[in-house]
């Protein structure tokens, strides 16, 4: 049987338990969409970091946050963090390929439909530069929907688990602080050097080179998916699930 089909079947097992959570995901989407729509003109005018941040979070993982606790990665040992569901499925005769794909499918269902709603809503409701053509709009949508693949898929990838100090509560806290710290510095630097934020430049790119932006984004998404898939394979063959 096709591995995607099997993966989808496996994913439904988990998704059936997630109906209410998916409604929460929609609420988050609408809330962020409301904020982004309102702030876009001001952001394009002056630019501020918060907008970039919320935008990127929405197009990577925000809507996957309401996942049921039982399906989120957890410390099952003080220094071992893993998705309990993945661990359970590793005991069963499920092909590695199917297991990995089902993690992607679950993340995809938790994010992609909401990101489509968000991007369409944004393009429809927010005030973009007057000369923004249909081509540019499509390019802009492709750019941000692709972002979810190469950045957002870090979440299903992390389901395969991590061990050692970085997987402890203290380690995870440090990673969190570092991510926020380094992220802020990079954002600020980028802003200072280019005079604007990521979203602004993405609008410019989509406006000026819609075809190039679209193709580059699709290539990035495709490589991103394979990168994370290989990472998961390698990681699952390295980690001791004990």
């Amino acid at each position: 049987m096709n591995t995607w089909k099997q993966a989808f079947k496996l994913a439904t097992f988990e998704l059936k338990q997630s109906k209410i959570n998916l409604i929460f995901s929609l609420v988050i989407t609408l809330f962020l969409l409301g904020y982004l729509r309102k702030s876009l003109p001001e952001y394009v005018e002056n630019g501020f970091l918060g907008f970039d941040l919320f935008f990127m979070i929405l197009f990577s993982f925000a809507t996957a946050m309401p996942k049921p606790k039982a399906f989120q990665i957890q410390n099952i040992q003080p220094n071992f963090i893993v998705s309990p569901i993945l661990l359970m499925q590793k005991h069963l005769p499920i092909k590695e390929e199917v297991l990995i794909k089902s993690r992607f499918i679950i993340h995809f269902i938790y994010t992609f439909p909401f990101q489509v709603i968000a991007i369409v809503g944004l393009l429809y409701l927010a005030t973009f530069p007057a000369h923004f053509s249909i081509d540019s709009m499509i390019a802009f949508a492709i750019l941000w929907l692709s972002f979810s693949f190469y950045v957002g898929f870090i979440f299903p990838a992390s389901d395969t688990g991590d061990k050692g100090f970085l997987a402890t509560t203290a380690g995870l806290f440090i990673i969190g602080i570092l991510t926020v710290g380094i992220g802020s510095i990079l954002f600020t630097l980028f802003h200072a050097i280019t005079g604007h934020g990521f979203v602004y430049w993405s609008i410019i790119a989509a406006d000026k080179w819609p075809l190039f932006t679209s193709i580059a984004s699709i290539i990035a998404a495709y490589s991103g998916y394979h990168f994370w898939k290989n990472y998961m394979k390698r990681n699952m063959n390295k980690i001791d699930y004990i």
């Binding site: 661990l87 359970m88 069963l92």
Partner: peptide, 24 residues
């Protein structure tokens, strides 16, 4: 394989677990 500590079953009932496991 029946592990000593069962992880990842909490969210499901016996019927659902059987539907997952038996076809495999």
């Amino acid at each position: 394989y029946q592990p000593q500590t069962i992880i990842g079953w909490d969210a499901f009932n016996g019927k659902q677990l059987k539907e997952l496991i038996s076809p495999l």
